[in-house]
Design a protein around this nucleic acid. Structure first.
Length: 696
RNA sequence: GCUCCCGUAGCUCAGUGGAUAGAGCAUCUGCCUUCUAAGCAGAGGGUCGCAAGUUCGAGUCUUGCCGGGGGCACCA
């Protein structure tokens, strides 16, 4: 019996009793976890509502306490319930059978099937799209908030049993790629062959994405004739327009250069993300959406369904617009959203509606696919193409020509989550409504904008990066990053720093470890620190990035949580196998041996017993927290829980000597609790994408 | 102008309509001969922006106001 199942059973019991005894049909039964263990394990503040409903139905006044007493009798008859108290004006406080539940929790195998009870999503295919970084420069900390949030959410969904496809959209024909192409062609006067040679000559500590980071900032200056405060020069902007035009047309040398740049940058991004444990299933590319006519098909369907209309007069004459009521129109801003410009070209929102329809399986067109990269464990990331492949191709990262493996079925999600920062809420609303208007069966609920606030820099972080600030800027709470200015914290730089700091700590504590083990440990700690740092904030909280905070391994951090798990594991590394076995047997034998059951019950008695039991129930709550993180679309809940559990364990670890405990029943209980906590904590961290090292 | 989000301890943030509002950081005081001190304990610190309303019950829901941020391009 899992905690979540027990809760559901008890809720059902309350509902059934309300129906049979009082003839009241409760839609939902609110259950609450009391603030302190002494007040019970589960509380139902249901008697107040029942009293009100009875009065409404019969006109008779009912006493909440009396109603609670009736419910108490029913609840006490349920298995695993030790007793029920009626408290205050009518609270029902349920106390579980501690010894019996500990034995049941001990028997559960958390790793194989953490959340079978909440696998309601098992039959639906869910698509989560995240990362979506413009392939023109190195990834910065803001990009990685998107990726880590998306990846953690994917892990949460998978933990509930859902089938999830992870897409990372590649905007390889947009302005940002065009800008870097302008940089190579017109600032540096390089050909495609030159760029390739340059790329191959770059040192590992300053790779291609770093080079483009700097080049992109230089192009920003180039457009302004070298003066950062000047206006952009129209003649130079014309170069960008020409490049964009060439990219859209395809099949020319400029497009080939852009493809080289974008593909190499995507390789860099995937490498960076792989360091963080983030992987994808598919990389859909904008160029393929263009070449395969996704927009034309979507355009037809938007017209057929009258989702968009052609304007013959007014400000938008000659445009196709989508009427919206998302905000009221004013002189400055029309309420309607332009989908097709008067020159016949489609806007970003229009293209995105087409792509969203594909993701929902509602477009009636598909991409072609080829393998992009295969990880060590054999997982392949695919990329879209515009043409079918020959039967045998060169597969990247392998040495031979191979038969093209058959690709999985991509797209066609019942629900599509787009992880995009909250500044794009308006466009996402337009996309959701447009897609739903074309495919009413699917509806708006199928398109979810998983919005989050951006990562900005604290003024101190800006100065640490070598950017001069005005007095005014220094007083601001945060400063927005800018790729165009080259202002930002590159993810690889940050990971390198975290790994170096972690390595220094590991060196100091475990000089005996091999170099390989030290590096591996430092890596796990660094990634744990970074991922936790990005996940501990709720989505709508803006992160003002601060080096001191991000580089910390103490307090509410990933390493703190990892450390608790490492401590728990070290108990079992040192524990004599016979003692461990004895503990398992003692807990397992409780059902058959009354003396043992009484002894275990005694361990859980009193204030000390309450303290131990509160750790057990906290640990047992993992699947409930994961289900909550999934339905509320908030991985931060799980991060907070992991920290809370680690904190509770550290206190337990400090107060009790487990191996040295002489009383057999007490020792068995302590061992069982430590074992339960380490399994649940490891599982919680793994669902956040955080690994636990052997030692730290 | 319209619209969305935010306002909780000195700072940064958690907080399903439910019991005495919590963490981390910072400050101060203790605790390493122990299964790892990346730890633990303790102290100080609150008009939950303001006002009204709904409710048995409001930090949480509604409305108004004040303050801050984002969005509302024939950009992406």
């Amino acid at each position: 019996m899992k905690l979540l199942e027990l809760q559901q059973t008890l809720r059902a019991c309350v509902r059934a009793t309300a129906a049979t005894k009082f003839d009241i049909a409760l839609e939902s039964v609110v259950a609450e976890i009391p603030p302190r263990t002494e007040l019970g394990d589960l509380a139902f503040p249901v008697a107040f509502e029942l009293a009100k409903r009875i009065k409404q139905a019969t006109g008779q006044k009912a006493n909440p306490r009396a109603l609670a007493e009736e419910l108490k009798v029913a609840l006490e008859a349920e298995p695993n319930v030790a007793r029920v108290e009626v408290a205050g004006a009518g609270y029902l406080n349920v106390f579980f059978d501690r010894a019996a539940l500990l034995a049941q929790f001990a028997a559960l195998d958390v790793s194989s099937d953490a959340n079978g009870a909440v696998a309601q999503d098992a039959k639906r295919k869910i698509i989560v799209e995240h990362t979506n970084i413009n392939p023109n420069k190195a990834a910065h900390i803001g990009h990685v908030r998107n990726a880590v949030l998306g990846d953690a959410f994917v892990r949460v969904l998978r933990a509930t049993g859902a089938e999830v496809e992870v897409d990372n959209y590649i905007d390889n024909t947009g302005v940002q790629v065009a800008d870097v192409v302008v940089g190579f062609m017109h600032v540096e006067q390089l050909t495609r062959a030159d760029v390739r040679a340059l790329d191959e000559s770059l040192p590992p500590e300053h790779p291609f994405d770093y080079y483009c980071w700097d080049l992109y900032a230089r192009v920003g200056l180039f457009y302004r004739n070298g003066d950062a405060d000047a206006k952009e020069d129209p003649a130079r902007l014309q170069l960008r327009a020409e490049v964009l035009h060439a990219l859209e047309a395809g099949d020319n040398e400029t497009a080939a250069l852009a493809d080289y740049v974008a593909t190499r940058i995507v390789e860099c991004h995937l490498q960076t993300m792989a360091r963080l444990g983030i992987r994808y299933d598919l990389l859909p590319r904008e160029s393929d959406i263009l070449h395969l006519g996704f927009w034309q098909r979507a355009f037809e369907r938007l017209k057929e369904t009258s989702t968009i209309r052609f304007e013959t007069e007014g400000k938008h004459a000659g445009c196709w617009v989508m009427p919206t009521d998302l905000h009221e129109g004013t002189d400055e801003h029309e309420a309607d959203k332009i989908i097709v410009r008067s020159n016949g070209t489609v806007t970003y929102a229009g293209k995105d509606i087409a792509y969203q329809l594909w993701k929902l399986g509602q477009l009636g067109l598909d991409f072609y696919y080829k393998p992009f990269r295969t990880y060590e464990d054999g997982h392949t990331v695919w990329v879209t193409t515009s043409e079918p492949l020959p039967h045998r191709v060169y597969v990247p990262y392998s040495t031979n020509m191979q038969d093209v493996p058959t690709h999985p079925h991509f797209g066609g999600g019942q629900v599509v989550y787009n992880v995009i920062d909250s500044r794009q809420s308006y466009t996402q609303d337009v996309v959701r409504r447009g897609a739903a208007a074309v495919a009413p069966d699917v509806g708006e609920a199928a398109s979810v904008h998983l919005a989050y606030e951006m990562v900005a820099l604290s003024p101190a972080a800006c100065e640490e990066l070598g950017f001069e600030l005005s007095a005014e800027d220094r007083a601001r709470p945060f400063i927005e990053m800018s790729g165009r200015k080259g202002l930002g914290v590159k993810v690889d730089d940050l990971i390198n720093r975290l790994e170096a700091d972690a390595l220094a700590e590991v060196e100091a504590r475990h000089a005996d470890l091999s170099q390989d083990e030290k590096l591996k440990t430092a890596h796990l700690i660094a990634i744990g620190a970074l991922r936790y740092f990005l996940l501990k904030w709720t989505r709508n909280s803006l992160i003002a990035f601060d080096f001191k905070e991000a580089l910390s391994f103490e307090g509410e951090t990933g390493p703190y949580c990892q450390y608790a798990a490492v401590r728990a594991n070290s108990i079992f590394r040192k524990l004599d196998p016979a003692t461990l076995n004895e503990a398992h047997e003692l807990i397992g034998a409780m059902g058959a041996n009354e003396d043992t059951a009484a002894a275990v019950g005694q361990v859980f008695a009193g204030a000390s017993g309450d303290e131990l039991w509160s750790l057990v129930t906290l640990a047992a709550r993992l699947d409930e927290v994961i289900a909550q993180a999934a339905t509320q679309e908030e991985p931060a809940h799980l991060a907070k829980y992991a920290f809370q559990l680690a904190r509770a364990f550290n206190l337990f670890y400090h107060r009790h000597r487990i191996i040295a405990e002489e009383d057999a029943a007490r020792r068995a209980v302590l061992i069982q609790i430590a074992d339960l906590v380490r399994r649940q904590l490891t599982n919680a961290l793994s669902t956040l994408g955080i690994g636990v090292p052997e030692r730290m």
